[in-house]
Structures are given as C-alpha cells and as structure tokens.
Design a protein around this nucleic acid. Structure first.
Lengths: 207, 207, 207, 207
DNA sequence: TATGAATGAGTATTCATTCAT
DNA sequence: TATGAATGAATACTCATTCAT
C-alpha cells in the first residue's frame, strides 16, 4: 500500500521532470543555450523559477540531463538502424548514416551537443563526473561504427580511425546544413554524407 | 611636422585598438563569446569599460572586427600556401591543408569562427552588412580550393562540392582536435586531414 | 483558513506596493522625475533595486501608477466638494476651488502632474494606453466644472471654455505658489483664485 | 593695432558662443532639457564635447545663458509692443498679449522657462546669483504690465496683482496650448487670453 | 582653441539562486 | 511541492567632466 503510494509519487515526480525538460528543450531551441533563462524555462513549464529547484539542483543540471538524454537517444537511434542490417558493411553504412540523420532531423540537439565542445577545454561548468558520463554516452553512440569496421576486417586502430573520420565528416556537414552559411550548390548534405560513407567503405574494403 | 604628429597619433591609436583587440581575443577565448563581458575585456586591456567606447562603438563591433581580421588572415594564409604550388593538384592540396593548419595553429580563432555558426540561425546580433562581409571573407578564404579543383578539370558544381567537402572534414577534425577529444582515439588530426585531401584529389582525378 | 492566509498575503503585498510608491513619491519630489533613479527609490524604500521589479515592471510603471492614483484622488476630492453644494453656482465654485485647493495642499502631486505636460509632446515614454487613461482621469476630475456651468444655463461650448479657463488660471497660480515666486508679489494665491472664480461666475450669469 | 586684433578676436569668440547656444537651443528643443546631452549639443555645433568647455564652464551654464537670453528677448519683445501704444489701457493690453504671444510663438523657450519652476525649490542647480539674475529678468519683462496698471489709476498693490493674474492666466493657457492636452473645443488659446485681458481691464477700470 | 583619450559614477534592467512560508 | 519575495552580482552602455597634447 505504502509501496504503491511511493511508486505513484515517483512516477508523478518523473513526469514532472520530463515536463520541465521538454520546456527547457524548447527554451534552449528558441533562445540559444546561453541566453535561455531559468525563468523562461519555468514559465514555459508553467512553474515559478524557484519551483524548478525541487526537481533539479541548478540550471546546468537541467542542461546536462537534456544532453544526456539526447546522447542516449542518439545511441538508441543508431543502434536501431544497425540492428536491421545483416552484413558488416550494411551495419557500417547504417551506423554512419544513422548518426548523421539523427542530428539532421533534430537540429536543436546538435546545438546541445556542440555545447560539449565549447570554450577550449571548458565544457560549460559541468562537473567532471557528468562530463565523463556524457563523453561515454557519445562514444557509445559511435561505437557501432568501429564495431562494424572491425567486422569488415579492419584492425583495431583502423576501425577507430574510420569512426573518427565518419564523426568528423558528419559533424562538419551538419554544421553547414544547420546554419546554411555556405551555399552547397544544390547538393544535399545527406547526399554528401552518403558519398563519404561510400568512400570510407571502399577504403575499408581496399585496406 | 604637423603631418608627423598626426601620423604618430594615428599609429598610437591603432596600436591601442590592437591592444584592445588582443585583450578581447583573450577574454573571448577564456570565457566564451557570450559570457565574456565588456568589463572583462576592458580590465584585461588595462582600461575602464567606458574607455573602450572611444575605440569601438559596441561589444559586438569588437567581436566583428576580431572575426573579420581572423578571416582575412586565414584567407591570406591559404593564399600564401597556394601561391608557391605549381600544379593544380598541388594548389588543391595546399589550399586544403592550409585551411586546416591555420586553425590547428590558432585554436582561439577557431572558437571565434564557430560563433558564426552558433545558435541555429542567430549569429549574435551582427548587422546584416557585417554578417555578409564576414561570410564573404570566409568564402574568399575557401575559394582557392574550388579554383584549383576547376584547374584540375572539374566542372563548376563538382568543384564547389569539393570545397564544401574539404571544409566539412577539416571543420569536423578541428573540432575534435581542439577539444582534445581526438586524443582518445590516438590519431593525429593532421594525418587524417592529409588522408582526406588525398582521397579528394583521387576523386577529382578519377572524375 | 487558506483564504485568510491568501487575504493576509495580498494585504501585505499591497502595503509593500504602497510603501514603494511612497518612497517613489518622495524621490520624485526631491530629485525631479527624470533624475530620480530606481536605485534612489529602492534605497528609500529599504530595498534592493532588483526587488522593485517584483512589484512593478519598470520605473515608468511606478511613475504611471503614482500619477494615476494622484489624478483619481484629485477627482474624488473635487467630487466630494461638489456633492455638498446645492445650487449649480455653488457647485461651480466648489469644483473650481476644490481643484485649486487639492494641489495647493499636495504640492508634490502638482510636480507629478506637470510631468504630463513636459517636454513638448513627449510624455516620458508612457505607452499610449496609459497616456490615454491618465488624460481621461484628468478630464474626469475637471468634468464637474463643465457640468455645473451647464446647470447654470451655459451652452455646451461656453461650459467647456469655462472649464478650460478655470484650469488655466488655477494652474498658473499654483505654479507661482508652488515655486514661492508669488511671495515676491505679496499676494495670496488662494484669494486670487477665489477672485477669478467669482469673475467667471459673473460671466456665466451674465451670458 | 593690438586693440583691433583683440576686438576681432572677441567678436569671433562671441560668435562662436552664439553658435553653440543655437545648437544647444536646438538640442534642448529636440530631446528635452534633461535628456539633451552635452555631446549632442557639441555635435550639433560641430565641436567635440571638450571644446565647449572653452566657451562655457558647464552644461548648466549653457542652459542658464540660454534662459537669460530668452528672458531678455521676452522683455524686449514686450517692451517693443508697449512702446507703440498711446493710452495706458492700450499699453496694458499690449504688455499682456505681448507676453502671451512671445511664448505662443516660441514654444521651446516656454520649456526653457518652466525649468526655472522645477522641482519644488530647486532651480536645477543654478547658483544663487544666476538664479536671482534670471528672476530679475522675468520680473523686468512683466514690469510694463504693473506700470500700465498704475498709469490706469490702480494702486501699487492692485497693479502688482493684475500683473500676477495676467502672468498666471497666460502661463496656464500656454501650458494647454503647448501640450494640446485639453481639447479646447474650437477656442483658440489666444482668443481666451484676449478675453481675460479684457476682463482684467474692466476690473482695473471699475476699481 | 580644440581634440582624442580617459575616467568614475551612473543608468535601468536581468540573472540564477535562496529562503520563509 | 510550490510560491512570492528578495538578493547580490552582473550586463552593456551613457554621462559630464578632465587633461595631456
């Protein structure tokens, strides 16, 4: 009985947290990560700023949680695409394009992710532990790439480099896609990514 | 005599401007572009905040000037590397690696440049004119790539895409290099860039 | 029980608002409306500047509220004086002298009101709606004059002009009274106002 | 020879002063007395802010000089109108309407003048001496009214009061005229002033 | 006389956070 | 859990004035 109560309360609390996170995602997408204020998030969620402190210890914590869930969701998305593929090569392609497409479809999360890479060595004021965790989540999302490369016969190092290459190219293209700052002469970013994946497959095969 | 006086004053003023810009570069590098305050810049430069307004009309103007000079310097650097090369292929390599190396050597300017690509479509509040100018400077710096590609026999569109590809890959690798996240893979960013340029040359040749 | 709590809180909040308004009135009276700073108001009220923003959305809003309540109070004061009077003539006198006396007794509110008339056509940055509301409140306070004039047999236009005349004369005398410049003439402002009202009554009768 | 040089220089200096005062008048008219900045005045005059300090010791001094010259000019204007009139009554009318018309035609100077009456007892930070001088200038401008009243047979006190009355009524009407804040139902402010002067003449005659 | 450069004090407003209730 | 109230530090920017040149 008590247990049920507790469980219900926990579910309720969790749903409120999610509600706040949704509001935060919205606010961050609208005003940018540094300009979005706690007050804006609270208002969007239908709360007072002070109320958020019952659910999160700080604004940074909200951001961190958002980023974590984004990276997990990215990981799941990539994993799901890979699962369907039968050959190693198909898995490599699926992982590479899955990574790219996830961010192409969720541009606001790309912004979120870039925050990790900000200010030289300073990831925004997250504590080391959180930072490590987030890093691990990102690596986990990319891992299927290296795995598939190895399955294609690549050595450990070669597989890692393949992963890095795919990550780098995808990131660069997404940056361009997302900001539209360089005219791509009619080329779709996705087509360019596809092309690069093909090249990389060729390299792995040839190597 | 008067002329000399005036000239000396102008030089003095210019050196003070540069001094402030240096302080700003430092402040931006330390605290990020949105969090670095005018006060911080002024303090670093040994001035009162109000004093900066004699040299620059606003904080954004400081940032814009910094970025403009960075992009021009990038352009010059790339152009210089290209000049020495004799064949079209050598020019393509020189331009691609020149772009990469410029930012590899000047990481704080990379940060500066990324600001242009931040916040979805919101580039910080620069007026349209400045924004256009900065875009043009960036494109000018990349132009030698497309030029060299055409000299290698590529069509207009193919040349543009080559440029975009190089830009994307370099950007992605620089992001990793700059944030130290590439070390975890044990790879040399420059070697990877070199490799990609080779690939791209191959593609252009083959096409 | 909850209701009582809420009611008590509301009363408390209202009393704090009034406290701040009093401080503002004082600050405005001391330093003039444009020079009185939010900081000064806050300090006088025993608050931090930021705290005021919980009670009012801006400095202008404080001023507007002060002026609105002053004009309403003026209106009530005039209305009260008129109510007691039995004949139309007595009501005219009561309204005219009531208007004059209100400001003679509350000189700081005169200052407040003059702000409405300052700076050519630029009333300080109040939004149109507020501006209209304040105008309406002023006119409402003067309305009994026109009403009484009509009751004395004046036409619509004549009644309006009577109102304008009384307003003008009172205003001019109050300016002199308030700034102490009337003492140099050794005259009693109130006596002069009385005299003018008498004259005006005569005119209305004669017409 | 030296004398001529000195004289020429003095004239030059004086013309520069006047030029600055013109600029200040313009700036004050545009932005209000408290918001117009020294910088704005300087720019309008084609100077650097610092340059103005060779011609005036402070911003307040500029304001004071502007006001003094305005009051002198008012005095001259009134005196000129009076001069032409032959009878005492005509002189009274001329003085009263002259006062009114001067400000009706030069509304920005009305603003200037009101500054004298600002902030309770605080005339804006002018030193006592300047304040007295300005007061004297105002009184001198009004003096012809009292003089004419006496010439019409009024006693000393009655004449003073007549002057005060005219001043008050004119001021009140000008305030309304200048700000347009009360719809005057087709009545021109000048007609109302004329009417009041007529009344006052009647009183003086009758008394 | 005039300027460019600089200052110190000031402006209204915003922010993340805390705390009594 | 949630709120209203409050804070202290911060923000970019403006101002009248000073001073070496």
């Amino acid at each position: 009985m008590d247990d049920r109560k507790v469980a219900r309360q926990r579910r309720l609390a969790e749903s409120k947290r999610q509600h706040i996170l949704d509001a935060a995602r919205e606010a961050f997408a609208e005003d940018g990560l540094e300009k979005a204020s706690l007050r804006a998030i609270a208002t969007k969620a239908g709360y007072t700023p002070a109320a958020l402190y019952f659910h999160f210890p700080s604004k940074e914590a909200i951001y961190a949680e958002l980023l974590r869930s984004s990276l997990l969701s990215l990981g799941e998305s990539v994993a799901a695409e890979v699962t369907g593929a039968e050959t190693a090569e198909a898995r490599f392609r699926a992982a590479g394009m899955g990574f790219f497409r996830y961010y192409a479809k969720n541009p606001s999360e790309l912004d979120l992710g870039f925050y990790l890479f900000r200010g030289g060595m300073k990831p925004a004021g997250l504590d080391r532990e959180t930072d490590k965790e987030l890093n691990a989540a990102l690596e986990a999302a990319l891992r299927p790439l290296a795995k598939a490369a190895r399955d294609m016969g690549a050595g450990a190092e070669e597989a890692e480099l393949s992963m890095v290459n795919i990550f780098a190219h995808a990131t660069g293209l997404l940056l361009l896609l997302h900001t539209g700052r360089i005219r791509m002469f009619g080329a779709s970013a996705e087509a360019l990514m596809q092309q690069y994946v093909d090249q990389q497959v060729e390299v792995l095969r040839g190597g």
